[in-house]
Nucleic acid binder design. Structure first.
Lengths: 230, 230
DNA sequence: CGCCCTATGATTGTCTAACAAGTACACATG
DNA sequence: CATGTGTACTTGTTAGACAATCATAGGGCG
């Protein structure tokens, strides 16, 4: 599917570029984005820029009040906990549901293979397949609205992942191993255990990120018992 | 719209009115809404009308593709099942979480009191407090993103509720009694049982609505065992 | 010297007007 | 009857403009 011509609207194109720039850290936390600024940057009309900005606000990547300039969101410890808890709500229930049928989505397997394949390289490279692993689990239940809800969270989740990886708070091998174990538990029909492991998986990332932000981390930040073979 | 000063933006005001008109059935399923139509109806500029329409599209109340006129969404049996399953995902997990602390949100109690109070009147009167009952449970977990996700579903849920009530598929007393029981189970810390009852509660509405739409209903559509005292 | 108030500039909300591009449907043609 | 064409309608985008609001820097006053 690498071909796929891009016949999207200008609004969407501008929004997409702003998105990648935010993820890349090019637009840092708290940075302000005026409508005219965006308009002149991409050489579009101001209403178009406005629409793009509003799109990103809806995604939670930008923040703005009436008559105030939009800013890149600043994630504090509270927001991070909020985001990860919301993830856990959706994802753990999804795992239980998937385990009931024992169906392991192929896309998730592939995503985890991709993680395993990139032993070397920049830490940020893991973000994309990691994100894909989790979204493909969500999509596997085949519920349009659930996917839509998760998607409204994905922007912020990704922002957190970028942080976690830039700070090197997690070992890639551990991520991959836990993903693997989750898939195995699903296949074995052990939904509750899969959900529990996911909670650990997310909890560790969450609390380490909180700690790195100056908050007081919970006990979840500690090393896992013994999942890694070596 | 008596009382309540309107200090919101024009876009929001137009969107709000369209929303109520959709809920009231004044704008039926499949009805088309042209940008210029909306613009002239409310005497606003077309870009303003456009923004309002896009807002409702994001809420799932309107449907539209690029370069195509927006239409009021048409809910088929598949969509109804999709919507109710998504609800169940969020709400059942919320009940488990609430049961863990035994906290019964006051707003939910009040909402159910309001349902009990309206023994008489139009069937549609139950929609608002019913909706409020469920949203207040969601909001009770105090997670901003979860509330946001649920809100992205609320429009469609409400549309379903309006249908259920117009067709008189459920007895108000039964709704109220099941809500009551759910609250009691939360207080007793029996999360799993509360979630189970909710599943029944939602499943019945769902399958009866599906049946009324010409789909083949599942077994959940049947009468409940014996919750009603008389 | 510090604080409150005002004035100025910047920014957003909304409007009018317009053109380009795409869609849908009736119509004519083979 | 199938197919192509044309016309009217609708949306996407732009430009420019004005009012309302917000932020900030000065000036007046205690």
């Amino acid at each position: 599917m690498a071909g796929r011509i891009a016949a999207v609207s200008i609004v969407e194109a501008v929004a997409a570029d702003l998105r990648t720039r935010i993820f890349a850290g090019e637009l840092g936390s708290g940075e302000s984005l005026t409508e005219s600024q965006v308009a002149s940057t991409y050489d579009v009309a101001r209403p178009t820029a406005k629409a793009s900005i509003e799109k990103l606000v809806a995604e939670g990547l930008l923040d703005r009040g009436t008559h105030k300039t939009a800013r890149v969101v600043e994630l504090g410890p509270d927001s991070v906990r909020d985001i990860y808890l919301a993830r856990a709500y959706l994802e753990s229930e999804v795992l239980r549901r998937l385990a009931r049928t024992g169906d392991v989505p192929e896309a998730a397997v592939q995503a985890n293979r991709d993680i395993a394949a990139l032993q070397t390289g920049a830490p940020l490279d893991v973000v994309e397949p990691d994100m894909r692993f989790h979204t493909s689990l969500i999509d596997a239940v085949g519920n349009e609205r659930i996917s839509r809800m998760y998607r409204s969270l994905v922007g912020e989740v990704r922002l957190c992942m970028v942080r976690v990886q830039s700070l090197q708070l997690l070992d890639t091998a551990l991520i991959q191993a836990e993903h693997q174990k989750i898939l195995e538990l699903i296949e074995a029909g052990q939904g509750e255990e899969a959900a529990g492991l996911l909670d650990e998986h997310l909890g560790r990332a969450r609390e380490r990120l909180v700690a790195a932000m100056g908050g007081t981390p919970g006990p979840e930040a500690e090393q896992p018992s013994g999942l890694l073979p070596q």
